[in-house]
């Protein structure tokens, strides 16, 4: 009866790839993996950037519509990077997580994009609307109508 769905098959493939051949600075947290639809991935700030030496945890939630629907990705506390596109509740303003998502992307490419987003930061600060957003937003960042602009 345990038919593997399309989403599960694809997630499983990504899981194996990330386990066996992770990119630099990205590690899958095996111990937290109780459910294939929920992952924790550790990322490291890249060398020669403002985040060098810092560690962060990303929380991935997939739906049964993955990869046609993007995963829900947030930073998991207690340490949330201070960055103009990262809210203090862990929500990330990054277009590939919503409207620019494509099914050819993967957990790995999302992690690399986030590391790269951190790397391009010039000044560590919270988004200007942080306090309002954190008080009013939904738990799921995908419910937010993000207004993307160039870095």
């Amino acid at each position: 009866m345990s038919r593997v769905t399309f989403a599960e098959k694809r997630i499983q493939k990504e899981l194996m790839a990330l386990k066996n051949d992770p990119p630099v600075g990205v590690t899958l947290d095996d111990s937290s993996l109780t459910n294939i639809y929920r992952w924790r991935v550790h990322i490291e700030g890249a060398e020669n950037t403002l985040y060098e030496g810092e560690h962060f945890i990303l929380d991935f939630k997939f739906t049964a519509k993955y990869p046609f629907e993007s995963p829900q990705v947030v930073f998991l506390g207690p340490i949330i990077p201070v960055h103009p596109h990262v809210y203090s509740n862990g929500h990330i303003c990054l277009s590939i997580l919503t409207e620019d998502w494509s099914p050819a992307m993967s957990v790995e490419s999302v992690c690399l994009s986030i590391v790269s987003m951190l790397s391009s930061c010039k000044e560590k600060k919270r988004p200007p609307d942080n306090s309002v957003y954190v008080r009013t937003c939904s738990k799921n960042p995908k419910d937010t109508n993000w207004w993307y602009h160039e870095l």
């Binding site: 590939i96 050819a104 992307m105 993967s106 790995e108 986030i114 790269s116 160039e150 870095l151």
Partner: peptide
Amino acid sequence: MADNPEAMPECDSESSGARSRKPAS
């Protein structure tokens, strides 16, 4: 910003095909 197409594993498989035997690092 991250340049997403470049992070895609298969986007330039033609050119990387001949070189894929190099060490992964």
